[in-house]
C-alpha cells in the first residue's frame, strides 16, 4: 500500500519555498530601497521624538487639564472627568513618560494609517478591480499574527520606534480602508443620482456628497484603527517601541505581576480615553449629517 503512495507523498513533501521567497523579497526591498527606508526612518523618528519632547515639556498637571478640557469639548462632562482622574492616576503611578511615548507613537502611526487608508478606501469604493485586489490583502493583513510583522520591520528599519511604527501602521490600517469604502458604498443610490443629475464632477460628488455622508462610518473605522494601533504598540515594544509596552515587557521578563498590572492599567486608561473621544466625534458627525 505505502509503496503505491510513496511517489505522491514524496512529491507532497517537497517543500514549496514560500518562506525563502518572502525572505528574498524583503532582502530585495532592503537592498534596493535603502535610501528610501533611511529617509523614512529619519523623518518618522524626528516627528515622534519631537512629539514626545513637546508632551513632556508641558508640565503634567497642565497637560492633564488640557486633555480633560479637550475631552469635555468633544465628548462631554463624564469623559472629561474620567480623563482627569485617569491621567492623574497614570501620573501618580509614575507611568507618565511611558504613556506620553506610547501616545506619540499611536498618534503618528494612526496618522500614517489614515493618510494611506482613507484614499485606499475611496479607491475601493470607486473601482471594483481595486476592491477585488485589496479585500483579500486586508483579510491577510488582519489575520496574520501581529508578531510576524515585527520581523520584516526590523530587517528593513532596524530596531527602534520607526520599525514599531511600521508594524503598527500595517496592523491598524485595514479598518480605515474597509469602513471608508463601506461608508461611501452605503450612500443611497438616489443621492448619487441627484448629484450626477445636477452635473457634479466626480470630485464634487466625492467631496460634497459621498465623503460627508460616509463620515460617521469613516469615523468608526478611524476609531478601530486607533484601538488596533494601541494594542500593536504594546506588542511592538518587543522591537524597541518603548513606552507602556516596554514596561509590560520588562514586567513579563522579571515576572513582576504588580508592575505588569500597573502598566497594563495605563494602556487601558489611554485606550478608553481615545476610544470615547473618537467615538463621540463620530456621533457628532452623525448628528450633523
Amino acid at each position: 500500500m505505502s509503496d503505491i503512495f510513496k511517489p505522491v507523498t514524496d512529491f507532497m513533501q517537497t517543500k514549496i519555498p514560500i518562506g525563502s521567497w518572502v525572505e528574498t523579497f524583503i532582502i530585495f526591498l532592503r537592498d534596493n530601497l535603502e535610501t528610501f527606508f533611511d529617509t523614512a526612518t529619519e523623518g518618522i523618528e524626528t516627528v515622534i521624538d519631537g512629539l514626545v519632547d513637546i508632551l513632556l515639556f508641558i508640565p503634567p498637571p497642565l497637560l492633564i487639564l488640557a486633555f480633560a478640557a479637550l475631552a469635555w469639548l468633544l465628548a462631554g462632562r463624564r469623559i472629561a472627568l474620567f480623563t482627569f482622574i485617569g491621567l492623574g492616576l497614570i501620573f501618580n503611578l509614575g507611568l507618565w513618560i511611558a504613556t506620553m511615548e506610547t501616545l506619540s507613537l499611536v498618534t503618528v502611526a494612526t496618522f500614517i494609517s489614515l493618510l494611506c487608508g482613507i484614499p485606499l478606501g475611496i479607491l475601493t469604493a470607486r473601482n471594483k478591480m481595486a476592491n477585488n485586489v485589496l479585500t483579500p490583502l486586508l483579510d491577510f493583513m488582519q489575520t496574520m499574527p501581529a508578531f510576524v510583522y515585527l520581523i520584516p520591520a526590523i530587517m528593513l528599519l532596524d530596531i527602534g520606534v520607526v520599525s514599531a511604527t511600521f508594524a503598527t501602521v500595517i496592523f491598524s490600517m485595514p479598518p480605515t480602508i474597509r469602513l471608508t469604502g463601506l461608508g461611501i458604498r452605503q450612500v443611497p443610490e438616489e443621492l448619487i443620482e441627484a448629484a450626477e443629475a445636477f452635473g457634479s464632477t466626480p470630485r464634487q460628488k466625492l467631496f460634497k456628497v459621498q465623503l460627508p455622508m460616509a463620515m460617521p462610518t469613516i469615523m468608526a473605522g478611524i476609531n478601530q484603527s486607533i484601538m488596533l494601533a494601541l494594542s500593536m504598540v504594546v506588542i511592538a515594544a518587543m522591537i524597541g517601541a518603548g513606552g507602556l509596552g516596554g514596561l509590560v515587557l520588562r514586567a513579563i521578563s522579571r515576572l513582576k505581576v504588580g508592575m505588569g498590572f500597573e502598566s497594563g492599567l495605563g494602556v487601558v486608561i489611554l485606550a478608553i480615553i481615545l476610544d470615547r473621544i473618537t467615538q463621540s466625534l463620530g456621533k457628532r458627525n452623525k448628528k450633523n449629517a
Binding site: 443611497p188 438616489e190 443621492l191 443620482e193 441627484a194 450626477e196 443629475a197 445636477f198 452635473g199 464632477t201 460634497k208 456628497v209 460627508p212 455622508m213 463620515m215 450633523n288 449629517a289
Partner: peptide, 21 residues
C-alpha cells in the same frame, strides 16, 4: 453632457433625494 445637466435639466426624485447633511 455635464453642461447640459447643469444648465438645461432639473430633476426631481421620487424619494426626494435631498442631501441630509
Amino acid at each position: 453632457l455635464r453642461e447640459v445637466r447643469r444648465k438645461k435639466l432639473g430633476m426631481v426624485f421620487q424619494r426626494f433625494a435631498l442631501f441630509p447633511h
